[in-house]
Nucleic acid binder design. Sequence first.
RNA 1: GCCGCGGUGGCGGAACUGGUAGACGCGCUGGACUUAAAAUCCAGUUGUAGAGAUACAGUGCGGGUUCGAUUCCCGCCCGCGGCACCA
Length: 810
Amino acid sequence: MYDHRALETKWQARWQESGLYRTGEDKNKPKYYVLDMFPYPSGDGLHVGHPKGYIATDIIARLRVMQGFNVLHPMGWDAFGLPAENYALKNKTQPRLSTDKNIVNFKRQLGLLGFSYDWDREINTTDPEYYRFTQWIFLQMWRHGLAYESFAPINWCPSCQTGLANEDLEDGCCERCGTLVEQKPMRQWVLKITAYADRLLTDLDKLPDWEEAIKEMQRNWIGRSEGAEINFAIPGSTETIAVFTTRLDTIFGCTYVVLAPEHRLVEELKDKIKNWPDVLAYLTKTKNKTELQRTDLNKEKSGVSLEGIFAINPFNNEKVPVYIADYVLNAYGTGAVMAVPAHDERDFEFAKKYDLPIRRVIKPLTGDAIELLGAFTGDGRLDDSGEFSLLLSADARVKMSDWLEKNQQGSRKINFKIKDWVYSRQRYWGEPIPLIHCEACGVVPVPEEQLPVTLPEVANYEPTGTGESPLAAMDDWVNVSCPQCGGPAHRETNTMPQWGGSCWYYLRYLDPHNNKELVSKEQEKYWSPVDLYVGGAEHATRHLIYARFWHKFLFDIGVVSTDEPFIKLQHVGLIMGEDGRKMSKRWGNVINPDDMAEKYGADALRVYEMFMGPFDQAAAWNTNGLIGARKFLEKIYLLFVNNPEKIVLADKKLLALLHKTIKKVGEDIENFHFNTAVSALMILVNGLTDYQNEFHAWPFSAAEYASFLQILSPLAPHLSEELWESLGQEGSIYKSTWPNFRPELIKDDVSIYIIQINGKLRAQLSLAAETSEAEVIATAAAEPNIVKWLEGKEIKKTIFVAGKLVNFVI
RNA sequence: GCCGCGGUGGCGGAACUGGUAGACGCGCUGGACUUAAAAUCCAGUUGUAGAGAUACAGUGCGGGUUCGAUUCCCGCCCGCGGCACCA
């Protein structure tokens, strides 16, 4: 039994004392930047699932250092935002105090696991010296017209009492507290991420080392669709109804037009609408529906016609009725659609209900004789479509778009699902938005030399629910003179959302103490971009899109030299509770890493978490598995202490196994196959244990035992360091050079042949590697079990694969 | 509904570009040590038949390609994740 507590605390203290993990500064070496998604320091502390990704990056960081790279491996805290504030409110403390306390606890917990972080580069998004630059970036966006004030209705969480971005919702509920979100018009700051939508989409193709699944999620979120915008004239009005469609080829089948209830024209055309009371009733009914009710796919479509209003289809000059219906979304496209019930399921359903005409204009290419019960939504051949009849759908879309543009009735158009980013929160615990409202000059930026605009300490930081943040009540802080004209003015009192500070933190690690600029050109050029980024897949459509957006903007204004921030992205699979459910206080299935490290050791915990299964897959916790990992380390310890004389009786097979293992462990770590790396080490250790127990000697030299420790060290740094020292090796194993495997030792001199009859295994044969084909076949055919099978049969064919198998086909 | 990922022993999982299915670990069974238990060590562990050699079946289901398929192709079923009235 080795005393893991004594051993691990000893080495953790020594590493810290010697500054072992300070980032290398020799710029002649190649660099490797390996990054974790920095944690949100919650009051609950880390559970056993959080460190899984950190263990993996630590293993990679250690491997890269040993391979001769300058490695940047930093850690910090993403500490602004709702959860921290809600936690402080619940515990009746100040967010500043509770956040600082939580950080101390998180840092202690991470310290127990022996990570090789360079703590000199620690950052904290709530530090004014940090958020000064978050504010600076916001100002640059404002200057470039990418931050604008809007009064449109947005998602409002009545429980958190703040506006939210689309990305903050889950099934129409607040992602934080699960409360049903309402639509509420309010003043807000919005970032124009849509201006980058096309680049965010197309540049995904430049990221071959991102998992396809995550890229696909982003593509869906951005949601690009190509189509056309068409203007339908309104007889008796100068207004036109613009509709967006991706199926211009179906336009001859348009039998009515639908506006979203919130569409601007509804109010504009009020005087001409003959059944206004009906319309008003419908509008009220819609307004009272929640977002969830409105988007419920199972609900029956409803709407009301705008009596007296018609729209003219420019292609055939036909006059069609106009409806409002809440299945049309005001926020997408133009908020109006041309309805083609024959070729769109939603329109079909609506037309059936209100008895509107259904006109088929696309014939399926196959089986068109069948009478369709629903809408035919596929491409086909145009029918009854004037001069465009008989064209194929795809061709028709091109020709009809040309026609539109030539006749100035509309144009080609690309739409995105992604919406501009609602960037202000009516809460206290966030970065103040560095803008000033002046009665005379309008919105004026805080001069850059006055940054940061620090978050004032307030006695009462509870949300007001009025659409203003608690800061609005702080007259001393709010009232300022205008930086431009000196007149009376007041500060913007909304704060930035949780995701603000994390949009650029990876850049700050490069140059964390620079108080002139967010990162120096020199440091940026050397360290950027991030070579490996590891974190949860839940960030695919939030943090990872936001950060790419900011990065591209910073690239455009010359702050960074690359147009993508993260070269390789690897997502980490969750660790579930022993009951298979997500670890949560609610289920009482949370396993605490402190307890596990205390009981079984940090090394055992590291090895176990990597051994649980494929890194990117979810896996259920099993403490017996952790004990297995501990036993494995125990065996290693015994290898070194059980044979103190260290007599060496050379064993070729075990030496070959060592070199195979060196090769495999290196490759597996690079490919994130930690589970098989651990298993390879176990196989080697089992071999060594058996050998030592039998012969009471080592099968190879101390130098080779040292290289075994080296390949173990990224996984189990404490124990390896201890045994490395006991072998009399100089310096830390962390600074040693990763061993090379010797290919000549790996090559087998015997080949094991499998002998098959009709593809079924019947015998095995072990022959010298250089045995000729003819000889192998002859020997195989002479095997007793094979002779039995071949007796009285004719060999039709013999398959031979060198070094592998012989297959007799009979 | 659309998109992505997956389905292998009692469990987590392994299997390189088609070539011994079940590595490694957990669990379980039997044994050794012990007054006893824990720990440790040894043996076994996909199913069926057999004392055994061995034979047959077997990687979600049904087909196909191939000398040979967990791996490739076609058609399904189930699970997980994301998006979802996006025109």
